[in-house]
C-alpha cells in the first residue's frame, strides 16, 4: 500500500475514535424526550412528530424502534414493506433516533408481532413499540 493510503488510513482511524466517542457521549446525555398528555415519554424527534401528525385525526401512531437502520437505503425497504398495508395512512422515518413512524386508522388492531415481522424481513430488528392515539 502506498504512503497516501497509509496516511489516510491513520487519519481515518484517529477521527473514527474521536467522533465515535463524541457521538456515544451525545446519546447518553442528549436523548430527547417529550412528555405526552398521559405522561408517556415521546421517544422521537418532537419537531418531526409534530409535522407527521399535522392533519391527522382519529388515528393510531405507532413509533417503532429499529436496530440497524443506519442509512436512508436501509429504511427505504421498510417503508416499501409497510406501504403494502392499506390500513397505514402515513409513514415516516426518524433516522437520527432509529424510529419508524406509522399512522394507522382507528379500526386497525396494531399487532406487535406483525410490525416486528415487517422489520425483520428487511434484515433489521424491532426493539420497542410505542402506540399513541390521536383523536
Amino acid at each position: 500500500m502506498n504512503k497516501i493510503f497509509r496516511a489516510a488510513f491513520l487519519i481515518y482511524c484517529a477521527f473514527a475514535v474521536m467522533v465515535t466517542y463524541a457521538e456515544s457521549s451525545d446519546q447518553h446525555n442528549g436523548h430527547i424526550h417529550e412528555t405526552l398528555v398521559d405522561g408517556e415519554k415521546l421517544e422521537v424527534d418532537p419537531e418531526l412528530f409534530g409535522k407527521f401528525v399535522e392533519g391527522l385525526t382519529k388515528s393510531q401512531i405507532a413509533i417503532v424502534s429499529v436496530k440497524g437502520m443506519v442509512c436512508d437505503f436501509c429504511a427505504r425497504g421498510i417503508e416499501k414493506t409497510f406501504r403494502k398495508d392499506k390500513t397505514i395512512q402515513k409513514i415516516n422515518v426518524d433516522l437520527s433516533r432509529g424510529k419508524v413512524i406509522l399512522a394507522y386508522s382507528m379500526d386497525k388492531e396494531i399487532v406487535r408481532e406483525e410490525i416486528s415481522h415487517n422489520i425483520l424481513i428487511n434484515g433489521q430488528n424491532m426493539t420497542d413499540l410505542q402506540v399513541i392515539t390521536i383523536n
Binding site: 500500500m1 493510503f5 481515518y12 477521527f15 436512508d72 426518524d94 433516522l95
Partner: peptide, 30 residues
C-alpha cells in the same frame, strides 16, 4: 465519512477514500 447527517429522504453525501489492486496490474491504486 458523511460530512453531514441528512434526514430520511434528503440528499446524502459521502466522502470516501478507496484503495484497490488487481493481479493483472499488480499494484495498489488509491
Amino acid at each position: 465519512l458523511a460530512p453531514y447527517l441528512g434526514d430520511y429522504g434528503d440528499f446524502h453525501t459521502w466522502i470516501m477514500i478507496k484503495t484497490k489492486k488487481n493481479s493483472l496490474s499488480g499494484s495498489w491504486s488509491t
